[in-house]
Every structure is written in structure tokens, then in C-alpha cells.
Design a binder for these strands. Structure first.
Length: 553
RNA sequence: GCGCUCGUAGCUCAGCGGAUAGAGCACCGGACUUCUAAUCCGAUGGUCGCAGGUUCGAAUCCUGCCGGGCGCGCCA
């Protein structure tokens, strides 16, 4: 029995109690959950349903709990139900019932953990969207890791997800980039408002190598070439870096295409029809203050140029017209000022800003080196690129350390620590558990022991076996919660603090395979099933984080 | 100034209103002729920034204050 099954049982018992007592059935929630008590004396699972419902229906929680306990105690598989404190229900299950979780997991295989929490939702997930004027650096990397995991988690929860990278290729930034390339190609210093990293010189040289005749050509002729080719090379470098990082985008969306294709005009028309456009001092404005923004925003400047904001509006409207119910944006805390205006765009377009648009703000990454803060600055040249990070620690460790903590907290990474003590990284703790199981299964095969078609679940009765089983049973709920709250780090926390820990403890206490030439025992089969179930959960969980599950370490 | 956000062990971080607040690192002490010791077991370490409020119950929700980060352009 999984926790979800048990929760359903609790709810159905509650329904029976309500019916016999003539209580208001409408007070019952649609779903409930059981929790794993920290204290083992509180049973295998606990329900707080009586506590939550007591006041609602005017029955003392303990009295309601007593009725629930009696009803629940009659259900199959439930060994005992105790009432504790103000009205907790502490539930104990028959060992065999918990033992079947291994079979549930193994039979579901790679699908174990998938659920239908977000079934039917069409989600557009935009993240990174770094300007194509330089390499992906550490500032973007957290969103790459988190965003891609979120894509996987949302998909696992049944949503139809499109991940998208918005390329800011229409504004002054790429012009500056082109001028910087031109300057470098001609041996001149970078313009004051330009880019000065080493990569500028490298790209300039590559372009010159392809088209030597560009050298010495006037800016007027050469700039468009540097613009087009430079942009192409830079974007392709960004894509390759992200690819190496295991980060996948379904759509690379060009801002320039938005302008060239008339989408901006179309968006302004749409917004005008909704009645939120006005003209002031020669500029076209969107009255975003109607919907809580601090100030109204210019769409078309008095000189006729469309603003970046106009493209934002067009992009949002474009996403909606492509059929996405929810447009999710993953932005760094330095962009939190965008929340108001983006929500206002949705509202001005006639959408529900609480439903159709969702802006996730994540805190930034701080870097320290040996405890001393490192200021990331392009000018100072101490930007750490994604490629450098990958070279130093590898994709698995990088992704894991960036995805394992909540984006609500600023993350502090010590460069010395992640580059030097990489074996301390908790990702190895999780991966090691997987590798240990893989090794175990190889040894079993060598001994000629195959996992049988079935096992006796009642034999998985050791305290550490039961803990591990219960933990494995929680995985679908962990995935569902991570998806619902957009918090993929919950997967990492679960794998690290629960699954890997419980497996290592089980492994420490319970011999799986016969030693030497001994014959298999009655525990061999159930434990092989449990090991395989654990391997499945770790592999599925790591996959949601975009981290590999190694067979050997 | 206005707004957003964060504040949990020495450090890095978990903890979607539940029972005695947890883990890793660091520090101290144990466990490998036995399925991978990248592991396990134990010890040490806390006014959950502060003060009120909501409630059967608050690290969690609300208000105020203190401290850190960030944002407030017809910039991109």
C-alpha cells in the first residue's frame, strides 16, 4: 500500500463516519494526505484529518478521531490505529502491506513517480534567455539547472511543457556586440559601451579567418557581417554550452523575428482593442497602472522606435496565441521589477494574471573564494562561464549543487570548495547509492541469482527495510509537490536525505546476497526486489534533475 | 524614499500550520579478511533576526521593527 492508497482509505473511512453520524459531507476535503511521523512511536503514518475537520463540523477532534480510528481499524492491511495528542491518528500497517511497495515501484519502472497532478495543462516555460552577446556565465547557470529540472518535473506531473529561450537579438546590445567585434578585428580597443572579454577577440578572429577581406573595410560595410556572423557564432556557442550541461530548449525564440513578423504591431492592436493604449507626448503607452504596475509603460517611443517592453508584450501575446494556458517565467532577483509590468501585460491583454502568467523569482548566486566574496564583473574579467564550471566540477556536480536548494535562498558557492573538494559534493552520496545497487545486481547475476517473478513482501520487516519502503512510496507525492510548487529542489532533498540515506542504512544492516558459496536465503529475493526498487527511484529522481545515475563509481 | 526578497547550528542548506526543528561540511570517538568504507554508528553544536498577533498547535500565516541582497528609465 502506498501513502496515496492509505490517504484514500482514510478519506473513505471519514466519509463512512460522516454518513453514519449525519455530518456535513461537504466539509470533507477532495483529497487528504498522510505523513511520515518523525518519531517511530507515532506509527508508520499519521493523519491530521480529525484535527482539521473537528472544528468545521462542530465535533471535538478527539471524538472525531476516535470514530475515525474505529472505522479505519476495520480496513484491510491496517494493523492498528491510535489516537494521540489533540487528535492525531497514528496508523500502523501490516508488514506485508508496506512490503508490496517494492513491487509497485519495480513494475512501474521508469514511469514510477509520474503522476497526473498537472494533467491537461499546457505550460510555456521560459528561462535563461541570456543576451547573445557573451558566453553563458554563472549568473545564468542556476536558472539553466533549475529551469531544465522544472521542465522535467512538470512533464512528469502530466503537463505538456514547452521550454523556451528568448533571444534578445533586436536591440542595442547586439549592435554593441557587433561594434566590439569590429573594433577587435581592427586591433582597436573595445568601445566604451562595448564588450571586452577575450571571447570577443576570438570570435573576431574566427570571422576574419572566414572572410579575410573584411579587414580594413569601413564600418558601414563590415558591421552587418560582424553582426550577423558574430550573432550566429555566439548563439551556437551558447547552445553548445547548454547542451553540454544537459539543458534542453524546445524553442529558441528570436526577438527580431517578433519585430520583423509584425507581431509587435499585432500585439499593440490587441491591447488597443482591450482599451489600454494611450498616446502622450508623441509616444504610445500601455496603461499598466490599471493593473497594479507602478507606472505606465511606453510601447513606441516618440522617435518611432519600439521599446523592449513592446516586444515583451508581443512575446507574451504570441505565447498565448500558440495555445499555452500558463506562461511561466523564471527570472533572477535582479529582474523582480518585471513582475508588475509582465502581470499587467497579461491583464491588459484580457487575461487573468493569476492564472495565465506566472513569474518565478529566484535569488542570485554569490561566489566566494576561500571565504572571500568574489564580485562578478565583466569589466574585471572574473566572470565564471558555464564552460569553466563544467570543466572544474563536471555537469552532474554542477547541476546538482545548483538545483538542490530552494531558489528562494541566495546560494553561496565557494569556488575552492566546488573545484577542490568535489568529492564532498552530496551528489556523490546519491550517485554512490545507485552505483552500489548496480554493483549488487551485477554480483547477483555472477552468482547466477536472478530476481524472481515475485517475492514475499512480509519478509521485508526489518526496521530499515520498512523505512526504505515507506520512503520509496513517497516519491510520486514528492514529484507532484515539486511540480505544483515549481520547486525541483525537493527532488534532490528527497533523494539525498531520504532515499540514499535509507538505502545506505539498509545496506549496512541487511545482507542481500549470500556470502561466498552459501545458498540464497528466504531474504535474498525480497531484498533484491527492494534494491531494484531503490535503484529505480534514484534513477528516476536523478533524471528529473538532469543528473546521471552511474553504474560504477 | 518606495517596492520586492531573504534572515534556521561555526559554514552551506532542508523543513507547502502538526508531535522532541533536521542534514552535509568542520570538530571528537567508534565500525571494513564479509554484497563498493564516496558507507554506517555515536558525541558536540539552536533565544528558527527581534517584538506582537491569528489558533488546539507557528520556523511556517499576518503586522511592525532590525539586518543583508536586489529593483525603481521614452535603457536593453
Amino acid at each position: 500500500m502506498t501513502p496515496a492508497n492509505l490517504a484514500d482509505t482514510v478519506l473513505s473511512a471519514a466519509r463512512a463516519v460522516f454518513e453514519t453520524r449525519g455530518l456535513d459531507l461537504a466539509a470533507l476535503p477532495a483529497t487528504t494526505a498522510v505523513e511520515r511521523p518523525r518519531n517511530p512511536e507515532h506509527g508508520d503514518y499519521a493523519s491530521t484529518l480529525a484535527l482539521q475537520l473537528g472544528k468545521k463540523v462542530g465535533v471535538a477532534p478527539r471524538e472525531l478521531a476516535a470514530a475515525l480510528a474505529e472505522e479505519l481499524g476495520r480496513r484491510a492491511g491496517i494493523k492498528s490505529v491510535e489516537i494521540a495528542g489533540p487528535g492525531f491518528l497514528n496508523i500502523r500497517l501490516d508488514a506485508a502491506v508496506t512490503g508490496t511497495i517494492a513491487r509497485t515501484v519495480v513494475e512501474a519502472g521508469a514511469a514510477y513517480g509520474r503522476n497526473s497532478k498537472l494533467a491537461g495543462q499546457r505550460i510555456n516555460l521560459e528561462f535563461v534567455s541570456a543576451n547573445p552577446t557573451g558566453p553563458i556565465h554563472l549568473g545564468h547557470t542556476r536558472w539553466a539547472a533549475v529551469g531544465d529540472s522544472l521542465r522535467r518535473v512538470l512533464t512528469a506531473a502530466g503537463a505538456e511543457v514547452t521550454s523556451e529561450y528568448y533571444i534578445n537579438d533586436a536591440g542595442a546590445q547586439v549592435d554593441r556586440f557587433a561594434r566590439s567585434l569590429y573594433a577587435a578585428a581592427n586591433g582597436q580597443p573595445a568601445p566604451d559601451d562595448g564588450y571586452g572579454g577575450d571571447y570577443i577577440g576570438e570570435i573576431a578572429q574566427q570571422i576574419l579567418g572566414e572572410e579575410p577581406e573584411l579587414a580594413g573595410r569601413p564600418a558601414q560595410d563590415a558591421l552587418p557581417v560582424f553582426w550577423a556572423r558574430g550573432y550566429q557564432l555566439m548563439l551556437s556557442e551558447i547552445r553548445q554550452s547548454l547542451e553540454r550541461f544537459g539543458v534542453h530548449f524546445d524553442v529558441w525564440f528570436s526577438e527580431k523575428d517578433l519585430h520583423d513578423g509584425g507581431s509587435v504591431e499585432h500585439a499593440i492592436d490587441t491591447l488597443r482593442k482591450q482599451g489600454h493604449i494611450f498616446e502622450h507626448e508623441g509616444a504610445i503607452w500601455l496603461r499598466t497602472t490599471d493593473f497594479g504596475d507602478d507606472k505606465d509603460r511606453v510601447l513606441i517611443r516618440s522617435n518611432g522606435e519600439k521599446t523592449y517592453f513592446a516586444a515583451d508584450a508581443a512575446y507574451y501575446i504570441n505565447k498565448r496565441e500558440r495555445g499555452f494556458d500558463r506562461c511561466v517565467y523564471l527570472l533572477g532577483a535582479d529582474h523582480h521589477g518585471y513582475i508588475g509590468r509582465l502581470k499587467a501585460i497579461a491583464a491588459c491583454a484580457g487575461d487573468d494574471p493569476g492564472q495565465n502568467i506566472e513569474i518565478l523569482i529566484g535569488q542570485l548566486v554569490n561566489l566566494v573564494r576561500g571565504g572571500q566574496p568574489v564580485r562578478l564583473s565583466k569589466r574585471a574579467g572574473n566572470i565564471i562561464t558555464l564552460d569553466e564550471l563544467l570543466e572544474a566540477v563536471g555537469a552532474d556536480a554542477a547541476r546538482y549543487s545548483l538545483a538542490r536548494s530552494s531558489t528562494d535562498s541566495t546560494l553561496t558557492l565557494d569556488i575552492e570548495e566546488i573545484t577542490r573538494h568535489s568529492s564532498d559534493n552530496p551528489v556523490f552520496y546519491v550517485q554512490y547509492a545507485h552505483a552500489r545497487i548496480a554493483s549488487l545486481l551485477r554480483n547477483a547475476a555472477e552468482k547466477g541469482i536472478a530476481r524472481a517473478g515475485d517475492y514475499d513482501p512480509a519478509l521485508l520487516s526489518h526496521e530499515r527495510e520498512k523505512n526504505l519502503l515507506k520512503t520509496l512510496g513517497e516519491f510520486p507525492a514528492v514529484v507532484a509537490t515539486a511540480a505544483e510548487l515549481r520547486e525541483p529542489h525537493r527532488i534532490a532533498v528527497y533523494l539525498e536525505e531520504r532515499v540514499a540515506t535509507d538505502y545506505h542504512r539498509f545496506y549496512d544492516a541487511c545482507q542481500v546476497l549470500p556470502r561466498g558459496d552459501e545458498a540464497p536465503t528466504e531474504f535474498t529475493q525480497p531484498r533484491l526486489w527492494l534494491a531494484e526498487a531503490t535503484r529505480t527511484v534514484i534513477a528516476n529522481g536523478l533524471d528529473l534533475l538532469g543528473v546521471s545515475a552511474p553504474e560504477r563509481m
